[in-house]
Nucleic acid binder design. Structure first.
Lengths: 116, 116
DNA sequence: CCGTATCCATTTAGATACTG
DNA sequence: CAGTATCTAAATGGATACGG
């Protein structure tokens, strides 16, 4: 399938499904092993790369970088580099990312209610 | 990583992150290329296998079956077989699945607002 | 400290053929 | 009609080594 729009559905599919365009987009933004957890963690505070890595005990550095880059390019999170030695990089929610928080909250609620 | 609880995080991780147990569970339930779209489609009406397949123009039969089986085993959807010839199988939202609808709605809304 | 690059393992999905 | 079985392709994530 040829991808357009960075969210995994081809042109004709999107054309035929204008109605559900939105849900496909959001699914793509959130698709990724750790993205929900990262956003949940950023909800309370901005965090440094190392903090996030430590929080997600089992993620590899490469995978974490990839997920953060995707969230950044989707403009869900911001990335601020402090030109120090050693370097310091802080991640935080963008305005768009904050718009996502009600969804994160409801996912948390649903899981709390129905998860084992 | 050893999987427990069918949602991709190992025992020690879950133990250390009781707080966010819920979000990990929900992410797992919704993870899958077409699950959001299927749920969105079932929101209005119960649907037959063939209808869903036709709606998701690009999904293969095997993939669709897999996604439906997962949603069924997570008790998000119900599957009703009518013993006719030719067979008729109808999928619908369970009570738990209906609990998911506010999340689906908000995802749709977010995407409508922010997606290109 | 916070990455990138490379390679490899696992997971997930599509294509095709066949069946009650 | 609504599957199952098998094979293959693609996407995703982990491990390791190295760099500014």
């Amino acid at each position: 399938m040829v991808k357009i729009c960075n969210y995994g559905f081809d042109e004709s599919f999107v054309e035929e499904h204008r109605d559900m365009h939105g849900i496909a987009y959001t699914q793509n933004v959130l698709s990724g092993r750790y993205k929900n957890l990262i956003l949940w963690y950023l909800k309370e505070n901005d965090r440094r790369f190392g903090e996030i890595k430590k929080f997600l005990t089992s993620v590899s550095q490469g995978s974490l970088t990839k997920q953060l880059r995707e969230l950044e390019s989707d403009e869900i999170i911001t990335r601020t580099v402090y030109p120090e030695v050693p370097p310091k990089v802080v991640y935080g929610l963008s305005k768009k990312g904050k718009d996502l928080m009600p969804i994160i909250d409801m996912m948390e609620e649903f899981g709390k209610k129905h998860g084992r």
